[in-house]
Design a protein around this nucleic acid. Structure first.
Length: 228
DNA sequence: AATCTTTGCAACCGCATTGAA
DNA sequence: ATTCAATGCGGTTGCAAAGAT
């Protein structure tokens, strides 16, 4: 591969460093006119002195309109922990399960909050335990509220990734038991149904809550093994 | 108030992968 | 089948802001 030092020929005097508001405007103008992709054309078409790689990164990590701003929520944090325990540093894969969050953002968050610790903080463990407890409550509730109505399309859209595969790996597995630190043991068979039904009866559960994220925390044991 | 340390995050780098010619 | 540009990804760096001393 010839001189792939960051898309675009070497020595063309590409600008580096922090982006200015004007550069952002030019890049957004490019995307508006030509769509995403063909990033090497940005310089030629809108006069931005940035290489394609830099343009793509800026768009993906900062300018994309669908990005979710603000702090990572505790719920998102538990998802990150869960997915990282399962997939490791596959940040882009993890990011696909967190709408509006970028791989860079998740990577930074992980490094900042968990990397040094080597193991989850007591606060995080408390959260995880609380989450597990809540999940068990949901399991019980779902038995009492089987008649609840639920929008399956919303749920499924959150659970499917771009390739049309489930974001919840356990759904691809056969019956399997999972043990939680709190001592509870759940059978995964029929988990999807229990997730849906259970959440539908949780008054404080948002659509997002329902959608995503009780699929998480199914393998806390794995995480503890990794961190120990 | 000044200085040092830590934290958070944007951006860069290099390698891997993909897809068109 | 091969080449190479375009793109994606994960690791790393640099710097500004916040917090501690």
């Amino acid at each position: 591969m010839a001189q792939n030092m960051g898309w675009g020929a070497v020595g063309e005097g590409w600008k580096k460093g922090p982006w200015t508001a004007e550069e952002d405007r030019l890049l957004m103008e490019y995307v508006k006119l030509h769509g995403e992709g063909r990033w090497n054309n940005v310089a030629r078409l809108v006069g931005l002195k940035r290489n394609g790689k830099s343009c793509r990164l800026r768009w993906v990590n900062y300018l994309r309109p669908d990005l979710k701003r603000g702090q990572i929520t505790p719920h998102e944090e538990s998802i990150i922990l869960e997915l990282h325990a399962r997939w490791g540093n596959r940040w882009s894969t993890i990011a696909r399960s967190l709408p509006g969050r970028t791989d860079n953002e998740i990577k930074n968050y992980w490094r900042t909050h968990f990397k040094k610790q080597g193991k989850p903080s007591s606060i995080t463990l408390e959260k995880s335990s609380a989450h597990v407890l809540r999940r068990q409550q949901l399991q019980q509730q779902q038995q009492r509220h089987q008649q609840d109505q639920i929008d399956m399309n919303v749920i499924m859209s959150f659970m499917l990734n771009d390739e049309g595969e489930y974001n919840v790996p356990i759904l691809n597995q056969s019956v399997q038991e999972i043990s939680y630190p709190s001592g509870g043991v759940l059978e995964e068979q029929g988990l999807l149904h229990s997730m849906v039904s259970g959440y539908s009866s949780m008054p404080e559960a948002s659509t997002e809550d329902m959608a995503i994220w009780d699929g998480g925390l199914w393998n806390l044991d794995d995480r503890y093994h990794q961190w120990s």
